[in-house]
Design a protein around this nucleic acid. Sequence first.
DNA 1: CACACTGTTCGCTC
DNA 2: CGAGCGAACAGTGT
Length: 260
Amino acid sequence: MPELPEVHGYKVYIDSTCLHTKITAIDCRDNRLFKQPAANFEKALLGKELSKTVRIGKYLFIETTGDKILVLHFGMTGRPNYYKSVEDRPKFGHIVLTFDNGFHFAFENKRKFGWWDLVDSIEDYKKEHNLSDDARDLSIEDFKTSLATRKTDIKKVLLDQSVCAGVGNWMADEILYQAKMHPKTKVESMDNDDINIVFDAMKKVIEVAIENEAHYDDFPKDFLMHFRKEGEKCFHTDGKIEKIKLGGRATYFSPEWQKM
DNA sequence: CACACTGTTCGCTC
DNA sequence: CGAGCGAACAGTGT
């Protein structure tokens, strides 16, 4: 669920709610969501303020007035929720920060694949975890360099966070639909034009999704998201949408529209 | 009820 | 060392 456009929305949401207010409490119901001992988070956050957010792909870094930078990953089912009264704590709000204005920030995470970490440097973290530049800012040169050494299906490569950080399963399908390219196209078989087409489609999908605040219903009519389901009708060909497994993930595409 | 679903990480092979 | 692959992870929804 939360891919680049959603996490972008979460960043905007957090920027407009949680910054520049002192943190007075932190509560975590399940320490497995913490990549470090809970005491580290208390030490790094209590009495501090969140000051600035930086998003790279699906990772959200939150700088603080303390020494540490908070890293949030929403996993597959995460979202932020800023609320006023204690009884409004959302059901899956497993981690909650309380601010000295009385409001609370819940890190909702239904399936607990999300997590928090603490780091000293965003740049170091990006290097250690092999994250590319955010797909929204990625240059065509870097994209081409990444693809040059790859020998597998284009869809799998699009999902690689060291190639275009932020692209997830639905975006990869949408990018390839917009690019009229079969998801199993081998990267090594793609020529320069093919790569440019996929790159441009990626940029288009990102911007359209962000403009529409990742609200799929508002996407243009020719976007796969409206019929991304087995047996549905392709907007262009009226052919049926097919479902296959690629890299262990459900992949939807229109065989008549997307050629190898 | 068994399984699908989602993204990252780990362990393994080459 | 780096690419590629598949399993593991959690737990709700179907």
